[in-house]
């Protein structure tokens, strides 16, 4: 028997407000993520996958509106949450990892400082405990010199280390779910493999679920338990990864697989 779903999206529709053409970016999208699962949201550019990820945390830009649908987290309807409730959720229950950590980190603050913010606002630890925790987190993501990295500015680190640091920041407050938006797309192949291993390891150790947003089927095959294929704002196919990839039903999924041969 499958446990209760962690994140449930039902019939989500997101449109561009004030747009003359009334374009919808996401159309009737539904997906479920279960605890301790890596679910991949796969699609080409413009398919609406990043938008979906942002919608979960209600971080959509002002021009976009959620016009329909439900987003439920741990059984509670998030769309009715106040801004204050959302802020308490962000970073603590649901965290986000972005594609390009060089731009996703603030260039004028040190890594340690930025990580500490999560701890200050979501955990009750004193200064010493926070500092120790930051070092532990950096160690957990496979960084060999946590002290040096914590003192560094984002531009001083290599791409791989930055991405690890970003992940360390995401897991800092022990969230249930991480939304990872194209976390490996800007890395070279070796680094990709390392990061994917890291995700797998963290899922086991921390009982995490990960919503993996990507266009890269290679990453999906190695990492994802479930797969949701997205095309033009709709889920066209979904199910356990191995099953779908072995026998893709939908034309789009088949095309996607072709490009990865």
């Amino acid at each position: 028997m499958r446990p209760e779903s962690l994140l449930e999206i039902k019939n989500l529709t997101i449109g561009l407000s004030e747009e003359a053409e009334n374009k919808t970016i996401v159309q009737g999208l539904s997906l479920s993520i279960f605890p301790k699962t890596i679910a991949a949201l796969v699609g080409g550019s413009g398919s609406g996958k990043t938008t979906t990820g942002l919608a979960v945390l209600r971080l959509l830009p002002p021009v976009m509106d959620i016009t329909q649908g439900e987003i439920t987290f741990q059984g509670k309807d998030m769309l009715n949450y106040s801004i204050e409730q959302m802020r308490q959720l962000r970073g603590k229950e649901i965290a986000m990892v972005f594609q390009e950590p060089l731009y996703a980190f603030n260039p004028v603050f040190r890594i340690g400082q930025q990580m500490e913010e999560v701890l200050i606002y979501h955990c009750s630890l004193n200064k010493q405990q926070r500092e120790q925790r930051i070092l532990d987190l950096l160690d957990m993501v496979g960084i060999t010199e946590p002290q040096r990295v914590a003192q560094s500015y984002p531009h001083q680190l290599s791409g791989g280390m930055r991405q690890r640091a970003m992940i360390a920041q995401a897991i800092a407050a022990e969230p249930q779910l991480i939304i990872a938006d194209e976390p490996t797309s800007n890395l070279d192949v070796t680094l990709q493999a390392h990061i994917m291993d890291l995700f797998r390891k963290l899922k086991e150790r921390l009982n995490l679920s990960i919503l993996l947003i990507t266009h890269d089927l290679g990453v999906v095959t190695h990492l994802a338990d479930d797969i949701f294929v997205l095309s033009e704002g709709r889920v066209v196919e979904s199910g356990p990864t191995q099953m779908i990839l072995a026998k893709p039903q939908h034309r789009f999924t088949q095309e996607l697989m072709e490009t990865f041969r």
């Binding site: 971080l59 802020r87 986000m96 972005f98 390009e100 980190f105 603030n106 999560v118 606002y121």
Partner: peptide, 28 residues
């Protein structure tokens, strides 16, 4: 910028986002 999105995604209060993250960069 992206890092403002990150700051919000971390659940920081809006004042901190504006007066610490944004301001520090805007002043440069």
């Amino acid at each position: 910028q992206q890092y403002i999105l990150t700051a919000r995604a971390k659940g920081l209060p809006e004042e901190r986002v504006i007066y610490r993250h944004a301001l520090r960069n805007a002043i440069n």
